[in-house]
Design a protein around this nucleic acid. Structure first.
Length: 120
DNA sequence: GAAATGACGGAGA
DNA sequence: CTCTCCGCCATTT
């Protein structure tokens, strides 16, 4: 039997988390790593996304913590990602996303969807 | 095996 | 704002 937490297992958890990111929001590599139970595993997230081809994964919703894309500005993949984000309403100004407004916050969404559970 | 290389991040100068 | 430096870890050289 292989180790319980193999690279394949972690890769699968990473991609599952990326699938959770709703359209119109973005998450940073580090954030996805945290959610996948891999603290400080930002680079592994990049590694996992690098292999996604036809797999059904919204890879374009993962950006750097700074709001910039991981690709070189103006490059082919950079433009592709920017286009996909724009189609969801995530616009960039000066090659950068306003993380304050577009960063996905799972816990906050929970509050918005299920309000009045235990307020006051 | 050692060293370099990333779809990264954070701290510090 | 820039530029280092370090931690991280799978993969490549």
């Amino acid at each position: 039997m292989p180790p319980a937490d193999s690279w394949e297992a972690r890769r699968r958890r990473i991609l599952d988390r990326v699938r959770d990111i709703p359209a119109g929001r973005v998450a940073s590599y580090g954030q996805v790593a945290e959610l996948a139970g891999i603290p400080r595993g930002a680079r592994q997230v990049g590694r996992a996304l690098g292999g996604v081809g036809d797999e059904d994964v919204p890879w374009h919703r993962v950006v750097r913590a700074t709001g910039r894309l991981a690709f070189s500005p103006g490059s082919r993949p950079w433009r592709r990602q920017r286009r996909r984000l724009a189609a969801e309403g995530v616009l960039m100004s000066d090659h950068r996303i306003d993380m304050q407004s577009f960063r996905w916050q799972p816990d906050l969404d929970e509050l918005l969807w299920k309000p009045s559970a235990s307020w006051d």
